[in-house]
Design a protein around this nucleic acid. Structure first.
Lengths: 215, 215
DNA sequence: ATTACTACACACCGAGTAG
DNA sequence: TCTACTCGGTGTGTAGTAA
């Protein structure tokens, strides 16, 4: 993004929406002021400046203003779009290193099995694939859309906390889920479950890399 | 886009690129000032303000600053991304009404045939499909990427002008091209050519609508 | 009705500099 | 070194108003 256009981005985006990028719009500085929650004077000045910068074409009429985005104006938005695309491109891709589990996972999956089936609509294999990921990847997962929460429960003897899940394609083929306990004990390790034995099916070994895709 | 974040967008985008959205970055106000072509003081102030707004997490260290985008900060960029997506969503789609040609097209395609084959890599059927489009659609085509120019030429008797072409899928199936003479005589009418007789193959009639997809 | 000028207040930028 | 303060010059928003 070219920083010189920063003060105009909000208005430019508004105009782009109004003109469907390529069209012409008959409007008035007052209408635009209302729509963008600023003053008629500010709109008038900004439109003049955007005209001077070559971002829009502007014709003053008796009843208002007719506006049109120029190729340059559209290009500013295209650039912005591309920058955003680049940012979110690898949005759903997760990569990490397979590590050996402690067998704990197996124990818990068994306990949560019915709840998992209810929330994620599959019957999990009783083993988890443990993947070590970096901080950024962990944050990516935690902030990802499509989070499913499995509520905790109590037995006579102890309390089991809630678990968060994200539906995931593992290794590009198996459909399963990443699960993270609300109060995780091991940092930077995610557990992945699926209806099948992932480790066996994908012939994975400790230390190897594996890709998942959030969905 | 929320207009209150406008002054921070440039810096926020810069930080997003640096942190790959989810990561942490150790940097300094001076480095960021250089990278974004502003002053150390401005960066310092803006980072404080972005922290106050909850867009970033900021930790001052002995050697500089450690930065992290918050969920809110990422969300601002997600919103921006979605707005851009919406703008460019129908970017490549062209729609118009079929009108009867004057037989002129046929004459010209025959003359330009070899040049068309060389530039567009297909041998055109000797007839054009005439489509009436609105102003915005015409502008969309003219500003579209992938424009191919066929240079004009002279014969003993007269001069033939250059022609602009855009590769296009017609009706979702036929691959052809939209062609527009440099000096078009009929306004808002585009001509479409293909290796086959489009009108016959798609069973099109005058007055009907047809969709094309630029590519 | 409009647009857009002038005038003024407030916000913002960046040089200098303290901590 | 670093961050971040003060402060003066400039930029930006809006009320009033002319055209």
């Amino acid at each position: 993004m070219d920083e010189q256009y920063q003060p105009y981005l909000h208005l430019l985006l508004h105009l782009a929406k109004n003109t469907k990028l390529y069209g012409r719009r008959e409007t008035s500085t007052m209408k635009l002021a209302e729509e963008t929650k600023s003053s008629q004077q500010t709109i008038s000045r900004k439109l003049q400046e955007m005209d001077d910068l070559g971002l829009i074409e502007r014709k003053v009429t008796l009843t208002g203003i007719t506006l049109l985005l120029t190729a340059a104006g559209i290009h500013v938005l295209e650039d912005l779009h591309e920058e955003c695309e680049a940012l979110f491109e690898h949005q759903s891709s997760i990569e990490g290193e397979i590590i050996s589990g402690l067998g704990e996972g197996k124990y818990y999956v068994r306990l949560y099995r019915d709840r998992i089936q209810k929330s994620l609509h599959f019957r999990p294999f009783y083993g988890t694939l443990n993947i070590k990921v970096d901080d950024a990847t962990l944050r990516k997962i935690l902030l990802a859309k499509g989070k499913v929460t499995i509520e905790g429960f109590k037995t006579r003897n102890r309390t089991f906390g809630k678990v968060f899940c994200w539906k995931t394609a593992i290794g590009g083929s198996i459909t399963g889920a990443i699960i993270l306990p609300d109060r995780s004990t091991h940092k930077n390790v995610i557990e992945v479950i699926a209806p099948v034995n992932i480790r066996k099916k994908l012939k994975l070994e400790n230390g190897g890399k594996v890709q998942c895709r959030l969905k």
